[in-house]
Amino acid sequence: MVVEIRRRLAEALAPVELEVVDEGHKHVGHANEGKGHYHVRVVSPAFAGVLPLQRHRMVHAALDGLMEQGIHALSIDAKAP
């Protein structure tokens, strides 16, 4: 899933920095047995002049479909360079 998240974000946002971390190990024993928890840090020129809420929406749009197929929780750090 990490590879697919990276691919989609790279295609949609052309980031200058991109980090995707599987944080499932932090959630073992929770309702979904720790699966599908990810942290994304993305720095992209596409975020210049864009409010934080809209940046998150852009990330979610790039990951459309994955939220239903394997991402249970997603934390996002989205910044402009």
Rank of each mutant, 00 (worst) to 15 (best):
V28T: 11
M58C: 10
K79H: 09
H60S: 12
D22V: 06
D22Y: 01
I76W: 01
K26G: 04
H37P: 10
H37I: 06
M58S: 06
I76M: 12
R6A: 11
V21E: 09
G34E: 03
R6L: 00
Q69E: 11
R7W: 01
V43E: 10
A31F: 06
V28Y: 06
R8P: 01
A14M: 10
V3S: 06
V3Q: 04
H39A: 13
P81E: 11
I5E: 04
N32D: 12
P52W: 01
G29L: 10
H72N: 09
D64H: 10
E33N: 14
H30A: 05
K35D: 03
V3T: 12
H39N: 12
V43C: 12
G36K: 08
Q69A: 14
G34R: 03
A48R: 12
A46W: 00
V20R: 08
A10Y: 00
R7I: 00
I5M: 04
V20S: 07
E68D: 15
L53D: 07
V21L: 09
D77L: 14
R7M: 03
L13W: 01
H60R: 14
V16A: 11
R55H: 09
L51K: 13
D64M: 02
V21K: 11
I71Q: 03
H27F: 02
K35V: 14
A78H: 11
I71V: 11
G34V: 08
V21I: 12
K35T: 08
L63S: 03
G70F: 01
E68Q: 15
K26S: 01
A61L: 02
V43I: 14
H72R: 05
A14S: 15
V28F: 02
P52E: 05
N32E: 13
V2I: 13
E23Q: 13
P52Y: 02
H72L: 08
R7Y: 01
L51V: 11
G70W: 00
A12W: 02
G29A: 06
A61F: 01
D22A: 01
I71F: 01
Y38T: 10
I5C: 10
P15Q: 09
V50W: 09
A12S: 13
L51A: 13
G49I: 06
V16T: 14
G70I: 01
P45G: 07
L18V: 10
A48F: 00
V20T: 11
V20I: 14
L9V: 09
P81I: 11
M1K: 10
P15M: 07
L53E: 07
Y38D: 10
